[in-house]
């Protein structure tokens, strides 16, 4: 299978934040209906039913994302996590993965010396990492 080295964020979104000393990042694959939602928001007409091939592409992208975002995968992408405990929870109903990194923020936002004390940018940092993405997944909307 041919792959292309591209940012993880090519078709994966992320949002990150803090809960005490833990940082969490949610990552998701864009919904097949997302472009319709965006079109509507811009005042254009759009069909709210996704085609079968759009659904299949989103499913294939999600299956790939789950393979990439294992505990070891997250550790490789974010060396800052060192030996910290990492939990990864797939949420297939949202085509999303919830990642929790325990202790990344020391004892919380007020205490940590991290430049980004609430891990606000952690998701965007992950999206910027280069990964080998199967070419077939880089269809429309990349």
């Amino acid at each position: 299978m041919s792959t292309v080295r591209r940012p993880l964020g090519s078709f994966v979104g992320a949002r990150s934040g803090d809960k005490g000393g833990a940082a969490n990042v949610g990552l998701w694959v864009r919904s097949p209906r997302e472009s319709a939602g965006v079109d509507l928001a811009h005042g254009n007409d759009a069909d709210l039913d996704a085609t079968e091939s759009e659904e299949e592409l989103a499913d294939a992208r999600y299956a790939w994302l789950v393979e990439v975002l294992t505990v070891d995968g997250v550790r490789r992408l974010l060396p800052e996590t060192g030996g910290l405990r990492i939990d990864v929870h797939p949420l297939p109903n949202l085509r999303a993965v919830n990642v929790v990194i325990h202790g990344l923020l020391g004892r919380g936002v007020a205490e940590t010396s991290r430049v980004d004390p609430q891990a606000k940018g952690l998701g965007e940092q992950l999206r910027a990492r280069l990964v080998d993405i199967p070419s077939v997944l880089l269809g429309e909307g990349t």
Partner: peptide
């Protein structure tokens, strides 16, 4: 702004600890 499945998904995933 806008409300799409993406903007709602992003916020659902914000600062959660698991399923």
């Amino acid at each position: 702004g806008m409300v799409t499945e993406g903007t709602v998904t992003a916020q659902l995933l914000y600062e959660i600890a698991g399923p």
